[in-house]
Each structure stands twice: as C-alpha cells, then as structure tokens.
C-alpha cells in the first residue's frame, strides 16, 4: 500500500500525471519521479509519447508507483496527482484527475499559436481556477518561473515544481535531492537545490 497521510492517499497504485508544452522540461521531472519511486522500493512505470507532439504541442507523461504496476497509462479521471507545467494545459487535462485529486500548477502562460490566428482566447486565471475547482478543491499554484528566475535561471522551474510536490506529499527532501543530484550537471547542482527548496517553501507557507 502507498500511504501519504497528508494527502489522504492510501492506494495500491499511485498515479501521477505530468502535463505541459513540448520543450518545458517535463521529461526531466518525470524521470526524477520514476527513479524516486524505484529508490523507495516500488515497481514503477513511466509512459510518455515522443515524436510529433514535441513540436510545441501539448505533452503528457503518466507515472505510476506500486507493489506491482500493470497499466502504464492512467485512465481518465483516475490520476491522484497532476503536475501542470503550464496553466492552460492544467485546465485542458483536468478531467484526468480523480475527484479530490491534487493539482500543482506552474503559474506560467505559454500562448499557443492558435490564439493569434483565431478568435479563441487564452482563459484568464479566474476561469482556470473556477473550472479546476469543479473537479477538485485541491489546487496549488506555484510561481515556478519567477522563483527560478530569481535564482538566475528560468529553466529550473521544473525543479521548483518538484520541490512543491515533495512538500505537498509531506515527504522529506533528501530522497528527492539524491535523485535530482544524480541527474543534473554538477555546476547546476546548487541552483537546483535552491530551486527545490523554493518550491517547498511555496507550498509550506
């Protein structure tokens, strides 16, 4: 059984969804989560789609931990946790979350090219918040890019999100930092650690 008392999660298979826009660093984040699961002693599956969607399209990764994980895909409406690297994508995929699931949202806006070539508008924050609230009361917004920029590198936003997630799940930072350290180049280690703690603060405060 997988048990996260802070989130009231008690399940055989934990299902985590990562959504964002091609090129945003969702892959590093899902790799970290997969390895973390393995280090914690779980069976792990991580599914992503490569190819076509990388060209600036919506991207989605499925991640599952459990005693034995069978399906690599999380069925619609079954995700326990969703990390959204971009606001619009959070809303686009919100129907993947189970009622009462947890959503971490990076407060970043990447306007799709369809906005400048059609009349469809990018939804405002209030609409996004309200629509997400129809699915779950548990949404955490994190200023990932701002936090990472304050540290001098916007690219570390994905690690800010991981930090936020670790705090949200009520987990100690060490196992996360172990994995992150093994995956980032040495010269960025310090930056990534700070980014991770920024993310934790965002949720803890």
């Amino acid at each position: 059984m997988i048990h996260f008392p802070k989130l009231n999660i008690n399940t055989e298979t934990l299902s985590i969804l990562l959504v964002g826009v091609g090129g945003q660093g969702t892959i590093l984040a899902s790799n970290v989560l997969a390895e973390l699961g393995l280090n914690l002693g779980y069976d792990v599956k991580k599914a992503e789609v490569h190819g076509m969607s990388q060209r600036g399209g919506s991207v989605i990764s499925h991640l599952r931990w459990g005693e034995t994980v069978y399906s690599p895909i999380i069925a619609q409406g079954q995700a326990d946790i969703m990390i959204a690297f971009e606001k619009l994508e959070a809303l686009r995929f919100i129907d993947q979350i189970r009622p009462g699931g947890f959503v971490v949202i990076n407060d970043q806006e990447i306007v799709p090219v369809t906005v400048s070539t059609s009349d469809v508008v990018y939804p405002d924050d209030q609409t996004i918040r309200e629509k997400i609230a129809e699915y779950t009361p548990n949404q955490y917004w994190v200023k990932g890019v701002a936090a990472a920029e304050a540290l001098g590198n916007a690219k570390a936003a994905n690690v800010v999100l991981l930090g936020a997630m670790s705090a949200m799940m009520g987990m100690d930072p060490e196992p996360w930092l172990d994995v992150i350290s093994s995956r980032v180049p040495a010269k960025y280690l310090d930056l990534n650690q700070q980014a991770f703690y920024k993310g934790r603060e965002a949720v803890e405060s």
Partner: peptide, 20 residues
C-alpha cells in the same frame, strides 16, 4: 459503463504541434 468526468464546458485554444 463508468461516466467520464464532465467534459469541460469551456472552449480552450488548441495546442497542436506546429512549425517551430
């Protein structure tokens, strides 16, 4: 058959793959 969660009642700008 399980009902799928409500479809979103809002039109979102699609984000298809596009020329970079």
């Amino acid at each position: 058959a399980e009902e799928l969660p409500n479809a979103l009642q809002v039109e979102l700008p699609p984000r298809p793959p596009s020329l970079c």
